[in-house]
Design a protein around this nucleic acid. Structure first.
Length: 288
DNA sequence: CTTGGGTCCTGTGCGC
DNA sequence: TGCGCACAGGACCCAA
């Protein structure tokens, strides 16, 4: 799944198309994603203006000129695609879209008043969309317990220290817990721990404050770099097919089992272990 | 409360 | 080339 940087990149790509624009047509090609769509999904969204498009953790939030906010989560395999109408300048009233792509997993299609078409694809359907009352959004179960945004000032070593206090699980598992910090996933947790040279497995409660400071620094750094890389991917995509979702990024440990560790290539070899059902990639030599 | 395991769904890539 | 299996970026639920 798209983690924080990918969701942020998607937000950045969709914002110019959606923010301030009216949804002229909304199509739900099936009644459910991970969960059933609300009965009034199409009815509420049709004619609504997206006033702002924001991100919280891995959620996309489209505020509407309605009581509700459209909440979207991409799950593991969700992505968006933007198709811009051509011939608008000629004002001929005839729009030519990119060819209708792989309709099999095109589950939701938004078309703006200007004729831009935003399609949500999700083969595995772990993603979901819902309409949530904007005034009480922060009380909703999806948001009430979320930890701080890792790029905000609310996230620091002091806060991590107290979250890790007395915990016997490794930091790998705990950093995936959205209640501790919101937006990290399997890839960026592995990357940040490698950069901070911290073992994914040793009890989190025993990690010293200075090492947590380093961890916070590296979490911020890896996310910031990935968002920047996503932004540049976005500019490339803008000229091609408008696909928004995953982007190619050179990871230091993720999916690099057997390759030399970037921290000390002559000594460390990246290993993979299954931890709490998820693959952990790490360097046994430098992550202690 | 903490922890580990199973679950949803489909596609891809690997070894044989 | 075909087949079966392991695995995939998330997050919820439940049992111990």
């Amino acid at each position: 799944m798209p983690e924080l940087p990918e969701v942020e990149t998607v937000r950045g790509g969709l914002a110019p198309v959606l923010e301030g624009h009216r949804l002229a047509r909304v199509e739900a090609r099936r009644p459910d994603l991970r969960f059933p769509l609300p009965e009034n999904f199409v009815q509420v969204l049709t004619g609504a203006i997206v006033t702002r498009l924001e991100r919280r953790a891995k959620y996309l939030l489209a505020a509407l000129d309605r009581e509700d906010t459209l909440v979207m989560h991409l799950g593991m395999s969700g992505r968006f695609e933007i198709a811009h109408p051509e011939g608008v300048a000629e004002r001929l009233g005839q729009f030519h879209y990119a060819p209708e792509p792989d309709a099999k997993h095109a589950h939701i299609v938004f078309t703006t008043e200007e004729g831009a078409r935003v399609t949500y694809y999700d083969p595995r359907r772990f993603g979901y969309m819902a309409l949530v009352n904007t005034a009480t959004l922060h009380l909703h179960p999806w948001f009430a317990g979320l930890g701080p945004e890792p790029l905000s000032d609310d996230f620091d070593a002091t806060r991590l220290k107290s979250a890790f206090k007395d915990r016997k699980q490794g930091p790998k598992t705990l950093l995936l817990d959205q209640r501790i910090v919101a937006g990290l996933g399997n890839i960026y947790v592995c990357e940040a721990l490698n950069r901070a040279r911290i073992s994914p497995f040793k009890p989190a409660g025993g990690i010293s404050k200075p090492r947590l400071e380093k961890l916070v620094t590296e979490i911020r750094a890896v996310l910031t770099e990935a968002i920047a890389a996503g932004g540049s991917t976005l500019r490339d995509f803008a000229q091609t097919d408008g696909a928004l979702g995953y982007f190619q990024h050179r990871f230091r440990v993720y999916d690099r089992e057997g390759e030399p560790c970037a921290n000390d290539p002559s000594v460390g070899v990246i290993a993979r272990k299954v931890q709490a059902g998820r693959s952990t990639f790490y360097c046994p030599a430098c992550q202690t």
